[in-house]
Design a protein around this nucleic acid. Structure first.
Length: 435
RNA sequence: GGAGGGAUGACAGAGCGGCCGAAUGUACCGGUCUUGAAAACCGGCGUGGGCUUGCCCACCGUGGGUUCAAAUCCCACUCCCUCCGCCA
């Protein structure tokens, strides 16, 4: 949620920032009007309530003095004011509710350094990385045996069974088997181990309450994109960001504890509503996938470092896996609701001949913390909202695809990078089937 | 799933219709004393909001109700603890 006080104080600055991501100034003006109205009603209601409380105290005193006549008269007067107060409070709460609902729909202000632009076409490529780049090798070229899409490799090596997945849960719910399943497990373990000691490992619940979803900004805006378990009032998390952001909801943290760095591996669920017909083959767009998330609660001063650390670690995983990737600086118009700055990592996968998004590193300022009410006590004793930062390291379904396609050998086998061997029982080769 | 107990400020813990936003202790911050520290003593010390910045309002798990007046009474719910049952 954006800062209402700031909107009041510098409306033009806020409006200009939000206009960069397509929020019309009229919307903000309407909110400002509602805010004025709300405060008017608030004053009226509080004034009446103060009077009722004052009279009530007098009633008590009169009763104590055995002055029944005065007490009765005051009671009558207070009762009438009480009725009035109820009406005023109701009006105030109604407007306040509307104001709050509107405010929840307003996205975060883009950071100054986030590039201008309307949609994904305006995102800015910052740089690319590939094996040997530092030694001066050119951008890699890929051989014919690498230009096989992973869904074919999956069948060929008997490690991916999309039909079985579809039979069990519907299309876009993949089923991995054998070394394919083991590879996924290896990737999560490999990544988590890299961050151990700096980022505390967390294994949160897979489902979250509506109120929890609100904190990260996934609700109320994106309910269509998520799976709901209506009977129990739960939502399947689309990312570990959801539980991690709310882990300290409502708390006031000691400044000395910050930054609090967390990492978590979870399954992530996305309905991919509106994406029907796109990327229906393979595992590029699926309803359920595994992901390792890095996360930090920090002070405003720590935010930049926290952001860069997560970005570096996400890159580090890709470099360790020897995958070609690029960095995309998301333009203001393409930022997620809660984000003020996001850098996407896209891996190049030769089989499908495309760049695939495998990580999204974002900083949120106090936008999420305001919703979740996560604060810290500064050394001066003030309570201030924390800043939150997070990023994937990484979303595995697409990495899985890129690994198979990148490391496919002429004989059809896949020789994975050595770093994974320890997590694959010492053998990082997925053999070709003898057929 | 059944029975019982509980939820109050950073923590512990009183209060059970009316000067209670809340005793007391600990912790914390400032001061006196001290070479310094500790101890002792003195003072301060919840959060959020509104406006005429001195006052007002809200908050005692959450939501509703009773009342002139609710932390206190009533109802529902949530969570925690103990015991029983069930279970990976």
């Amino acid at each position: 949620m954006i800062d209402l006080v700031r909107l009041r104080r510098e409306p033009e600055v806020v409006k200009a920032a939000l206009a960069r991501r397509g929020v019309s100034p009229e919307v903000m003006d309407a909110i400002l009007e509602m805010d004025v109205k709300h405060r008017e009603l608030l004053q009226e209601a509080e004034g009446l309530r103060a009077e009722v409380k004052f009279l009530s105290r007098l009633v008590g005193e009169a009763r104590r003095d055995k002055d029944a006549e005065t007490a009765d008269a005051l009671t009558e007067k207070s009762r009438k004011l009480g009725d009035e107060e109820r009406g005023a409070t109701e009006a105030m709460e109604r407007v306040g509710g509307l104001l709050h609902d509107e405010l929840l729909m307003i996205p975060n202000l883009p950071a100054a350094e986030a590039p201008d632009g309307a949609d994904e076409n305006d995102n800015v490529e910052l740089r690319r990385w590939w094996v040997g780049m530092d030694e001066g090798l050119p951008f890699p070229t890929y051989a014919e045996h690498q230009k096989v899409p992973h869904w074919d490799i999956g069948i060929e090596l008997d490690i991916l069974d999309l039909e079985a997945g579809a039979r069990l849960a519907g299309s876009m719910f993949p089923l991995y088997r054998g070394d394919g399943a083991r590879l996924l497990r290896a990737l999560s373990a490999f990544s988590l181990d890299r961050h151990l000691g700096v980022y505390q490992e967390v294994r949160p619940p897979t489902f979250a309450l509506t109120s929890t979803m609100m904190s990260t900004g996934h609700l109320p805006k994106s309910s269509d994109d998520m799976y709901a378990i209506e009977r129990d009032g739960l939502w399947a998390i689309p990312t570990a960001e959801v539980p991690l952001t709310s882990m300290h909801a409502g708390e006031i943290l000691e400044e000395s504890r910050l930054p609090i760095r967390l990492c978590a591996q979870t399954n992530c669920f996305r309905r991919e509503a509106g994406a029907a017909g796109r990327d229906t083959r393979g595992v590029l767009r699926v309803h359920e996938f595994e992901k390792v998330e890095l996360f930090a609660y920090c002070t405003p001063e720590q935010q930049e470092d926290a952001f860069n650390d997560i970005l570096q670690r996400a890159e580090g995983v890709l470099q360790a896996l020897g995958l070609t990737y690029r960095l995309l600086d998301l333009c203001a118009g393409d930022l997620g609701t809660s984000s003020m700055r996001t850098i996407d990592l896209e891996v190049f996968s030769p089989g499908v001949d495309r760049w695939l998004e495998v990580s999204s590193v974002s900083k949120f300022g106090d936008y999420q913390a305001r919703r979740a009410q996560v604060r810290y006590r500064t050394s001066e004793g003030n309570n201030t909202l924390v800043h939150t930062v997070n990023g994937s390291a990484l979303g595995w379904a697409r990495v899985w695809a890129a690994l198979l396609e990148t490391y496919r050998q002429e004989d059809g086998s896949v020789v994975l990078p050595d770093v994974l061997a320890a997590y694959m029982g010492g053998n990082a080769t997925i053999p070709a089937r003898a057929s």
